[in-house]
């Protein structure tokens, strides 16, 4: 570490602190509700499957969290000819 590096180096510890706080707050809030993503996906798919035939292989679930918002993204590929159930 050079003398200049000592003053200019970005501190990584605050980043670590922030990442941990965010992660632990999330994990504590989820204790007991471990498979929320699985449950949400199953219930949402069940509702859609009532009306449209969907291929379960073509369902993508993505999650992203930051300090203020979390997003759960469920991407369902529709069949080319939408088979609407009656």
């Amino acid at each position: 570490m050079s003398i200049f590096g000592f003053f200019t180096r970005t501190r990584t510890a605050p980043v670590a602190r922030e990442r941990l706080q965010l992660l632990l707050a999330h994990e504590r809030s989820l204790s007991g509700k471990s498979d929320l993503a699985v449950i949400l996906r199953e219930e949402i798919l069940a509702v859609i499957a009532k009306h449209i035939t969907i291929d379960r292989e073509k369902v993508k679930v993505k999650l992203d969290r930051d300090g203020t918002i979390s997003t759960l993204e469920i991407d369902i590929e529709m069949p080319e000819v939408v088979a609407v159930k009656t």
Partner: peptide, 12 residues
């Protein structure tokens, strides 16, 4: 996940 920086993206 934490060491790789992907802890916020784990779904399954």
């Amino acid at each position: 996940d934490l060491i790789m920086g992907a802890e916020r993206r784990v779904v399954f």
